[in-house]
Design a protein around this nucleic acid. Structure first.
Length: 451
RNA sequence: GUGGAUGUGGCCUAGCUGGUUAAGGCGUCAGAUUGUGGCUCUGAAGAUCGAGGGUUCGAAUCCCUUCAUCCACCCCA
């Protein structure tokens, strides 16, 4: 038989067990945090009818979506979680309670060239709040507050949630008579950090066809920096010239005030007039989150307010606000930077039961006893040499090995070996369980990352 | 989609003005050491040098084609 060389496609992340364990832990934190704010879990199919996913048509989605046929069906892999949500809400409109709050942590697919931190298959961890007809501005402050909680839950402190409002930008461009070109301008301005003000100016003049005055006004506008209060104060200078701008400013102020009330420290969020990117369906508040020490990797979490979620699928006005964490990218960066908490248990079990006799019965009973005490226990059933059993325990990085030989069985005992200290005690099974639990709770089980 | 670079055991790398058996490290497996692991020592397995074609007495090395990967752009999480 010919061997097919195993390989994983570029742009797809595949983890070894210990890393996967850490990844699962992040998802756990996400789930519990999202749930603590009253969001309901949702799962939708990876594959949808292509018509549904491409309802919006045109643009990047069309170019990057994985599309295929099976028989007569025209199918596609979901490109994000927002479009499936729109379909879901439209389809189950009558059965849902609004505001509808859901979270979804699932894989999405994009057929683009993979790069460092850019994947073709990746997890998004989304939360959205969908209103029926209306949705209060309060929600727009709550969403980033939840993101803050999540990131802190991951153990991160050096991150910044940047907030802006599209109405401010659109209102401002309208003031300059540039409403037609707002998309183009936003995309250019968004690159400010990367290419610098001069380059931005050049592109605005040459590619976007702005006048010198218009370009200067825009550069002056995006040059507004400082504390949130300072930026807001500077924005007041543009007030009462355009109603859209004024509305956006009011919203931005409301978000900023409430964000503080939700307990998000000023250093973790910033009003930033250059952020504008994200899908073009955003209409108001927009968010983008970056890791302060790794700006090169781009946004690990972004989202915003949209006014018409499901217009392609239902004749209802369903405004919403949501945000998406690029979990795969975030994990990739954290791992690459060695930021993954080495104190997180990564072993698949707390204890490995090693039977030293050929008779399995007592070992099975022992493992069950330990499990009843709440421990994660693996029973090693292979007839291997003792050395190999220990080597296995090492590789798994289990904190405890529990030995069960003839002597122990005869006495109704078992030997608990702490794999890090090498210390070993012989105890009855129930006490052994208590012993292990106590040790684990002390945090003395600190997982071995490197020896 | 556009531009640039790179493909050598599972992983990382040496060899590249062509010259016989492709070298090393990590990892894997075995033994030293048959109820006590990590360290050390010894040994072993594992590569048609990405694939196909060409030049040549001779190609990992030169040429062409192709595929794959990586980087930048585009766009995005």
């Amino acid at each position: 038989m010919e061997i097919i060389k195993p390989r994983t496609l570029s742009g797809f992340m595949e983890l070894l067990p210990d890393k996967q364990q850490r990844f699962e832990r992040m998802m756990e934190i996400l789930r519990t945090t999202y749930a603590s704010y009253g969001f309901a879990p949702l799962d939708t199919p990876v594959i949808e009818d292509a018509q549904i996913l491409l309802a919006k048509g045109g643009g990047e989605t069309e170019k990057q979506i994985y599309r295929f046929t099976k028989g007569d069906s025209d199918l596609a892999l979901r490109f994000d979680l927002t479009v499936p949500l729109a379909k879901y809400v439209a389809l189950h409109y009558n059965d849902l309670a609004f505001p509808f709050r859901r979270y979804q942590i699932s894989k999405v697919y994009r057929g683009e060239r993979a790069q460092r931190g850019r994947f073709r298959e990746f997890y998004q961890a989304d939360i959205d709040i969908i209103g029926d007809g209306k949705l209060d501005i309060l929600n727009e402050a709550e969403i980033p507050a939840i993101i803050y909680k999540v990131f802190r839950g991951f153990g991160l402190t050096r991150f910044q949630i940047r907030v802006n409002n599209r109405k401010i930008l659109n209102g401002f461009y309208a003031l300059l008579g540039l409403e037609e070109k707002s998309g183009e301008i936003m995309r250019t301005v968004d690159k400010l950090d990367k290419i610098g003000a001069e380059k931005v100016c050049t592109i605005l003049l040459e590619d976007c066809g702005l006048t010198q005055d218009q370009a200067e006004e825009i550069l002056k506008f995006i040059a507004i920096r400082g504390t949130n209060a300072e930026v807001l104060a500077a924005l007041e200078g543009y007030a009462e010239k355009h109603p859209l701008f004024d509305q956006g400013l009011e919203e931005l102020k409301a978000v900023t005030v409430n964000l503080a009330a939700f307990g998000v420290p000023e250093e973790n969020f910033a009003v930033d007039l250059t952020i504008a990117r994200g899908l073009d369906y955003y209409t108001g508040t927009v968010y983008e989150t970056t890791l302060l020490d790794h700006p090169e990797i781009g946004s690990v979490c972004s989202g915003g307010r949209y006014d018409n979620l499901a217009g392609y699928y239902i004749e209802k006005a369903l405004p919403g606000v949501g945000i998406s964490i690029g979990l795969t990218r975030l994990f990739y960066v954290l791992d690459e930077q060695g930021l993954l908490n080495p104190n997180l248990p990564s072993a698949p079990a707390d204890a490995l039961v090693l039977p030293m006799t050929s008779e399995a019965g007592p070992a099975i009973a022992l493992a069950e006893t330990l499990r009843s005490a709440g421990l994660r226990v693996q029973l090693y059933g292979e007839q291997k040499k003792f050395k190999q059993k220990m080597a296995y325990a090492n590789k798994l990085a289990v904190p405890f090995a529990v030995l069960l030989g003839e002597d122990e069985i005869a006495q109704g005992m078992c030997s608990v070996k702490d794999m890090r200290s090498g210390q070993q005690v012989t105890l009855p099974p129930v006490e052994a369980a208590a012993h292990i639990r106590a040790a684990l709770n002390q945090g003395s089980q600190a997982v071995i990352l490197e020896r």
